[in-house]
Nucleic acid binder design. Structure first.
Lengths: 243, 243
DNA sequence: AGACTTTTAAATGTCAGACAAATAAAATTT
DNA sequence: AAATTTTATTTGTCTGACATTTAAAAGTCT
């Protein structure tokens, strides 16, 4: 692990990259302890604050964890699916809110991914997951539910559908898509949407999953996508008229 | 933006979280300049190094960028699709290498996601993307190609397929899946695989995309998935026997 | 007046040294 | 032998300083 003093990039960024490479390449393995900050400072010929900045960069990516005390130090962290979820959701949310992504594009991606899970979910969903979906549908039908609560329940419903595929890798990959895009979609369409319509489609999906009828789940998700995109068009149209 | 001095967590982590919240909530907008490090130190009642550690955490997530000089400072960064790609690939790669994810699980997820793109790609792929795929197939047929180069070409082929869907959100979501899993799969199966077989399937996929025949693309991807999983089983079987 | 050069100020990047706090092992006492 | 105290190590934080970069302001020359 070496750094280049001639490199114009920050020393702390270079050091972080060097350690990151060592982790990705397997040179440093999970739970292995890194040298102490002072030792790293000596190795890289920099000061301790610079080393610390590098370590904080890595900590922000969940690549290391630190512990104080006599036997403490920085340890290579085993990235958990939960760590990865939350990072993905943050990144996806900002990516969508900061870039001019059309509603159609986001919507298309979200449903394409969700439908990829649906077939597996139809085979494997547990009674528990189905019960979760029914419960969320029930919640969605409550009068006086705020838009935020309806949106959260919507996310929970789709999350249960995705988890029904019983594939943590798939769930992880979709976490960003569903959890980041759903609020965005709700924000755009909540003024126009009909809760009854959505609840009816959710019920149809739950019924199809209960019957383990994959084609029907797929068809209903397409219906839901079509409905959502139509809503967005209506909202855009109305906005155009008033302006 | 406030921090809690009674909180046992690192001050720099708390400060990073406070600023992160301000960005996600829209309180700080893209390209907006944060207060200088000294000002932040005053605001949060901590020292400058602590503030700097917090800012480095945010920089590691591409949430801010810094610039030196008179009009410099830390600015809220517009996360690009490229930033998001590379973060996703790093995270996904480590997630898979550090956790006991079965080959079947990873493989299933990867092909489920890729097939989600295939239908769109069949409609929309450009001549250029098709040409890329053909070129990669040609490269894969070269004798004397190293396993690493074959693997890289394999990734490029599938990447072109995914990009054919012409949906950047979808491409971003799949980058992690395809680029992180493909090397893993190749590592496991390269001893046993038949390049001819893979090239034949790639050709079949390219032909189907050229004909814009979505069902055929889907079917061939299933074939490829089946072949890959069979390979993994063979390798595991052989390993079991020799042991 | 206008173009060029020099100066200055502000900001991040880096360093050195110090102390605080946490933690576990070692030493001591009961 | 058990409980307590001491000690060493390590991360967390602070203070203050200097280096470097950068753009604006001031100054100078034509």
């Amino acid at each position: 692990m070496k750094i280049d003093p001639a490199n114009p990039a920050d020393l702390s960024a270079q050091i972080a990259q060097a350690i990151r490479n060592a982790i990705v390449s397997g040179e440093l393995i999970v739970d292995e302890r890194l040298p102490s900050e002072s030792e790293l400072a000596d190795q890289f010929q920099v000061s301790r604050p610079t080393v610390r900045e590098a370590l904080k960069r890595l900590a922000a990516q969940s690549l290391i964890r630190t512990q104080r005390g006599a036997t403490g130090g920085a340890f290579v962290n085993r990235i958990s699916f939960e760590d990865a979820y939350s990072q993905q959701i943050t990144t996806s949310t900002l990516l969508l809110s900061m870039n001019a992504v059309s509603f159609d594009t986001a919507c298309e991606a979200r449903y394409a991914l969700e439908r990829a899970c649906a077939a597996l979910s139809a085979q494997r969903r547990t009674a528990d997951q189905l019960a979760t979906m029914r419960a969320e549908i029930f919640r969605q039908a409550q009068p006086g539910l705020t838009d935020e609560a309806f949106c959260a329940s919507d996310v929970a419903f789709h999350r249960a559908l995705v988890d029904g595929a019983d594939n943590p890798v798939l769930s992880y990959q979709l976490a960003g898509a569903v959890e980041a895009m759903q609020p965005l979609m709700n924000m755009i369409t909540f003024t126009a949407r009909s809760r009854e319509e959505i609840i009816a489609l959710h019920t149809k999906i739950a019924d199809a999953l209960e019957a383990r009828d994959a084609p029907s789940v797929d068809a209903t998700l397409i219906e839901l996508e079509t409905y959502t995109r139509q809503l967005a068009r209506d909202v855009a149209e109305r906005k155009r008229k008033t302006a």
